[in-house]
């Protein structure tokens, strides 16, 4: 049991160390409880999207249409909120997410195109559909519908999603199927797990999680503007980074928690940079550099440990041979 605890301490140390780094640089503005609170709340939306994405990413597939989908969900939610109020907003968001998820699943099942390529084509369709509905005007929702965008609303939604995610990823049959397919599709197929059904369910799930995140995002910003072309991919860069960072730390701690730590890291960096009033360009560079370093470290470590293992058994052979000769 203590192995689990010591592992999670190691993982938690990383964001704490980064936070201290910025604290030393800017004690006045970074020391307050409020800042820590903001770091957490700002990581919620990224984390929820990342949770939705991790299933597909684990199986080596990338869903790039989530950005355009979230914008479409928010647009439909904003439109419905004018007529049906708060419930209309929630229903609109989730319904649109569901339809997008089903559309992706059907297209993938019928056309069997790699998911990444399919979703690039869908960005054009979903993004421009949003633009057509509002004929490219921005929409906002009235203030009384936005309590999910601030405490305690966003915390509750986040925790509920976290619990749902924990059970889905670790306790459900679907979750174990995803891990099996990610490990070895061939063996899973031989044991009666349908790889295609698992992927279609993951497409649906990533849309639903993105739908929930869209509700919180719309409530937090209270406005949405239709996206043009492929720009919506920028919005999901941050969750994608949290997924990759999360996978690296998933060896030490449960993937649901490690992805949350990944999004906290991103939030600390972006807040730190605002506190230092550096241009947010530095954020891109720092995040990109961190990801490259981690991926390089992971690959080199994997190759090195395999070589090391071989070296060890070779040395053992040599010792054995010397003993028998002597």
């Amino acid at each position: 049991m203590n192995k689990k605890i010591s592992n999670s301490i190691v993982v938690v140390m990383v964001p704490i160390a980064l936070y201290l780094f910025f604290l030393i640089l800017r004690p006045k503005s970074f020391g307050k409880i409020n800042t820590i609170y903001i770091i957490f709340t700002q990581s919620f939306i990224t984390c929820m999207i990342a949770w939705g994405m991790q299933y597909l990413a684990k199986m080596g597939e990338f869903d790039l249409a989530l950005g355009a989908e979230m914008i479409l969900d928010s647009i439909i939610a904003a439109l419905l909120s004018t007529r049906f109020g708060f419930l209309g907003m929630i229903a609109g968001c989730l319904l649109s997410a569901l339809i997008c998820g089903i559309l992706k699943g059907v297209l993938y099942r019928v056309m069997k195109i790699p998911i990444m390529i399919l979703t690039i084509a869908l960005i054009y369709l979903l993004g421009s559909f949003g633009g057509l509905i509002t004929n490219s005007a921005a929409l906002t929702i009235s203030y009384e519908y936005t309590f999910l965008g601030r405490a305690p609303g966003n915390v509750i939604v986040f925790l509920l999603t976290g619990i749902l995610m924990y059970f889905l990823a670790n306790k459900s049959v679907y979750g174990s199927n995803v891990n099996a397919v990610a490990g070895a599709p061939g063996i899973s197929r031989n044991n009666g797990i349908s790889v295609e059904k698992t992927k279609i369910r993951s497409l649906l799930l990533s849309s639903m999680f993105a739908g929930i995140a869209a509700i919180v995002q719309l409530s937090h910003g209270s406005g949405v503007t239709p996206s043009v072309g492929l720009d919506s991919i920028q919005n999901i860069m941050q969750p994608m980074m949290s997924v990759f960072i999360g996978f690296v730390m998933a060896q030490y701690v449960n993937v649901v928690f490690s992805i949350f730590v990944g999004s906290i890291l991103m939030s600390i960096i972006s807040n730190g940079i605002t506190a230092l009033n550096w241009s947010s360009a530095i954020y891109n560079i720092v995040v990109g550099a961190i990801l490259l370093l981690i991926m390089a470290y992971m690959n080199v470590a994997k190759v090195y440990s395999k070589k090391h293992e071989e070296k060890m058994s070779a040395i053992a052979n040599m010792k054995e041979m010397n003993m028998s000769n002597v």
């Binding site: 059970f167 306790k171 459900s172 049959v173 174990s176 891990n179 099996a180 990610a182 490990g183 070895a184 063996i187 899973s188 044991n191 009666g192 797990i193």
Partner: peptide
């Protein structure tokens, strides 16, 4: 015939995890 990334127990019951599902969860 076993998958490296998942636990030994998951390998043994690969494909029929439903036996241990109570209230929808394994």
């Amino acid at each position: 015939g076993t998958i490296g990334d998942i636990s030994v127990a998951s390998n043994i019951f690969l494909g029929n995890e439903k036996r241990f599902v109570s209230k929808g969860f394994i």
